[in-house]
Amino acid sequence: MTRTKFNPGLDQQPTIHRDPEPARGADHAAAPPLSVSRTRLSTSDPDELAPALARLCPGVTLRPLKGTAFRCELGIATVGPVSFVTTDWTLGGRMDAATLHDRYVLGLAGEGSRDTEVEVRRQRLSMAHGKRAILLVPEWPVKIQIPAGGSGRSLTVLRSALEAHFAMLTGHAPPEAILFEPDLDLTGGGGATLQGIARLLREELERPALSPFVRSQFCDVLLTALVTIPRHAGSHLLELAPPRVAPAVVRRAEEYIAMHAGEAVTLADVVAAAGAPARSLQAAFRAARGVTPMGFLKIRRLELARQMLLAALPETTVADVAGAMGFRSAGRFSVDYRKHFRESPSETLSRRRPTGRRRGGAR
Rank of each mutant, 00 (worst) to 15 (best):
G112K: 12
D96W: 00
R103P: 00
A30N: 05
L125Y: 03
V105P: 00
S126N: 10
A30L: 11
T90E: 15
R103N: 01
L41I: 07
S126Q: 10
H165S: 11
V142K: 00
D88F: 06
A29W: 12
A173G: 09
H28M: 10
L135R: 02
L158G: 05
L108G: 02
P138I: 00
T86F: 08
D102E: 02
T87E: 03
G171K: 12
E117C: 03
L100V: 03
G130Y: 07
P147F: 12
P147H: 14
P32T: 04
G112E: 02
A148H: 06
L65Y: 08
G149K: 12
R121L: 01
L74Q: 09
T90C: 13
V120I: 09
E117Q: 08
A29R: 12
A77P: 03
P64W: 08
A128K: 09
A50C: 10
P81G: 03
V85N: 01
G92S: 11
P147M: 07
L136E: 00
T68K: 00
F166M: 06
D88E: 11
A52K: 09
W89P: 05
R94A: 15
K66T: 11
E163C: 04
H28D: 13
G110S: 14
L135C: 04
R63D: 14
T170M: 07
P141G: 04
I146W: 10
P51C: 13
P51T: 11
P46M: 07
F70R: 05
A128W: 06
V82D: 02
Q145S: 15
D96M: 11
V82Q: 02
S83K: 06
H28L: 11
R159I: 00
A30Y: 14
P141Y: 09
L125W: 04
L34G: 09
T61I: 13
K131D: 05
A164T: 07
A109Y: 03
I146M: 08
L158R: 04
L91R: 10
E163A: 02
W89A: 06
D115T: 09
V120K: 00
T156P: 06
T86Y: 10
I76V: 14
L65Q: 13
D115N: 08
M168K: 11
A77H: 12
R121P: 01
L41D: 14
G80N: 13
T86C: 06
D27A: 14
P33Y: 09
G152F: 01
A109G: 04
H28C: 07
L74T: 11
L62V: 15
A161K: 08
P46D: 10
P32F: 04
G149E: 10
A52D: 01
A54I: 10
L125K: 02
A97W: 07
G93V: 14
R40L: 12
R71F: 15
E111P: 07
T87H: 11
H165N: 13
V137W: 00
H172V: 05
Y104H: 03
R132H: 02
A50H: 07
L56F: 09
V60P: 00
D96V: 11
P51V: 14
R40D: 15
R38I: 08
V79S: 15
C72G: 05
I134H: 03
